[in-house]
Write a protein that binds this DNA or RNA. Structure first.
Lengths: 235, 235
DNA sequence: ATAATAGTGTCTCTAAGACATTATATT
DNA sequence: AATATAATGTCTTAGAGACACTATTAT
């Protein structure tokens, strides 16, 4: 029997029944803090609770495709880049059926997050609290998400912090043109602590990632700051 | 309808048919190089090719459980800690059926890897080659693994390098008691480049991760080296 | 004694933190 | 002119790389 004959006779129905899903952690920096997009569950289970936007993986799509589709349809996010960070597989994590969920992190600008917060959406604030991420509502009350989504958010923000200097993903939290002060605020929000200004500026300017635009941000109060953008092809 | 009633009536058979699997990247350092455990495929598809040890996720187990089970049954590895690093989801990556595979990295000692290399197993050598990982047989010929396992290995070794200083996982590549020179060789193998000796020693000793044992490795040739072990609870 | 490896000292360079100072626009 | 923020300068400290040197033990 050659490989072709084998495949023709293979019974694809004999594998264990598992569903695969994607859950999105969509984050922006607003008022110097990380903000998280939540969606209210309209149906059981956990009806009425806040949760991460998610979808089941469809037969013809990759996980990246599924994340992009979920962002479009459930989070009104069109252009963000989503990155896989971890799979969650506790057998009872979804009471309906066995779902292995792949967590995806998407970083967007404040404007994009505000634009995608509709009636059934909400924003929560993420703060570092002795080594963990605490999720709070805008009136500073703790929020407990549906399913294991608290854990998914925790893992996502840890990964975000690890990748802060290692990749250029973090720049997706800023508009195309930004000032060094805005970049510093983003770093402070991700790290959960203040950053030394001269050292930060030197490090960023020496990194080769920034392209000065030779223009300043008009419209702000007091002295305007130089504008930069992420250099094309920067690692 | 409350949540309990909803769940009783929920038809779990309506989700898209996907199988979930785990693939193991089992690595040790032998002769100053990263070595990878491979298993020969006995059945179609890709019969006769070298592949990573893998299994389908069973209904009652987590992905971590599945990785441990696969290590026991398909790689003769009992005690290693496996860490998830990425999910692979190209729809055609397995010709039999839709399989989303979660890559797991396990670091073991040279002795453990040699002990688990049976008749149907083989070792390949991993080398950094201008930004990618090249997989070669012991006689230095390139090896092409089954399915997308080349890509899985590549991703695993990148992750290993990222986590080299960030976690204490790397110490699993060494026996319980080791010398600083052996630790340096492990770091050089993972990074794919040489390391400055005095700086490396200072950095390791200052890290607080090492506990000197006050003994030396007897039996070696020439001057014996101080023995250390990973300090309990070290981050 | 010799050889080979273990381990250290010194110098230099770079990066970061602390803190103060200068610069520049808006009010 | 006053003010709030942008941007830089200086000093210090810590860590890493280069290179040479000393130390120790098997042969």
């Amino acid at each position: 029997m050659n490989e072709r004959e084998f495949l023709l006779g293979y019974d694809a129905a004999t594998f264990p029944a598992v569903a695969v899903a994607v859950d999105l952690v969509v984050v922006a920096v607003i008022d110097s803090s990380l903000n998280l997009l939540l969606i209210r569950r309209e149906d059981h289970p956990a009806r009425g609770r806040w949760a991460l936007p998610g979808s089941l993986l469809q037969p013809e799509e990759t996980l990246d495709d599924c994340a992009a589709r979920t962002a479009r349809h459930k989070a009104c996010i069109e252009r963000a880049r989503f990155r896989q960070f971890q799979a969650f597989s506790e057998p009872q994590r979804d009471p309906r059926l066995r779902v292995v969920s792949i967590g995806y992190l998407g970083l967007v600008t404040e404007g994009a997050l505000r634009a995608s917060t509709t009636k059934e959406h909400s924003l929560a604030i993420l703060r570092w609290k002795d080594g963990n991420v605490s999720i709070r509502s805008s009136d500073n009350r703790p929020v407990r998400l549906a399913f294991d989504h608290d854990e998914i958010v925790n893992t996502a923000v840890r990964r975000l912090r690890i990748d802060l200097d290692r990749t250029t993903d973090t720049f997706a939290l800023l508009p195309e043109e930004f000032t060094l002060r805005e970049l510093q605020i983003v770093h402070e929000a991700v790290r959960g602590e203040e950053v030394n200004k001269p050292a930060f500026r030197k490090r960023m300017l020496d990194s080769g990632r920034l392209e000065p635009l030779g223009r300043k941000n008009t419209g702000g109060a007091y002295r305007p700051a130089e504008l930069y953008r992420l250099r094309e092809g920067a690692q």
